[in-house]
Amino acid sequence: MKKNNLIHARTCVYNVNYHIVWSTKYRKEVLNNNLQEELKNLFFEIAREKGFIIATMEIMPDHVHIFASAHPQIAPSYIVKMLKGISARKLFIKHPELQKQLWKGHLWNSSFYIETIGSISKDAIKEYIENQKTRG
């Protein structure tokens, strides 16, 4: 098995990655270039404070893509909750006009898309597991 991108923690070695996508409420295009840069910095700050890593991200006018890595003890839903909740609160405080552009004052849609990302394919893992007894 390929051993790239492994993170060594006190009790485990892991490579847990997520591709997370969510949109603004009603897909309103409210994230202009200035807000995009501010939001990127905010997301990195939140990740650092909450103990996960954002490898890369892209912020579009109406949605966000994030590639994150986290210790297995950190639930993916926690990552999303922290990023969405803290960023919305901080942006609304700093940019009250943003809240007026969105009906009912919610920045983010309540749903999100998430998928796990590994460094090896599902088929390679399946083959590796199936061949364990023959390696003896």
Rank of each mutant, 00 (worst) to 15 (best):
S77W: 02
A47E: 07
N131A: 15
G136T: 09
L83P: 06
R48S: 12
L39M: 12
Y113Q: 08
L31G: 02
Y18E: 02
K126W: 00
I54H: 00
V64C: 11
Q99H: 11
G51T: 04
T116G: 10
V21F: 01
S119R: 07
P61S: 09
D62T: 11
H19C: 06
N33A: 11
V80T: 05
V21T: 11
I79R: 00
K90A: 11
S77H: 07
A68G: 03
K40G: 00
F67E: 01
G118A: 09
E49H: 10
L35W: 03
V21P: 01
F43H: 09
K40F: 02
Y78G: 00
A68W: 02
F67S: 01
E58S: 04
N131K: 15
M82D: 04
T134M: 12
V80F: 02
E115V: 15
E38A: 03
E37H: 13
G105M: 10
V80R: 04
K90Y: 05
H71Y: 10
K2P: 15
I117N: 00
V64P: 05
V13W: 00
K90Q: 15
E97Y: 12
I93Q: 13
R10V: 11
N33C: 01
I79L: 14
I53L: 14
I117V: 15
N17A: 08
Q99I: 13
T134W: 09
K2R: 15
V64L: 14
K50N: 11
N33S: 14
E115I: 09
I93C: 06
Q101G: 06
I117G: 00
H95P: 08
N17W: 03
A124H: 07
K2C: 09
L91M: 13
K84D: 04
R10P: 00
F44R: 10
V21A: 03
T56C: 13
K2M: 13
N4V: 10
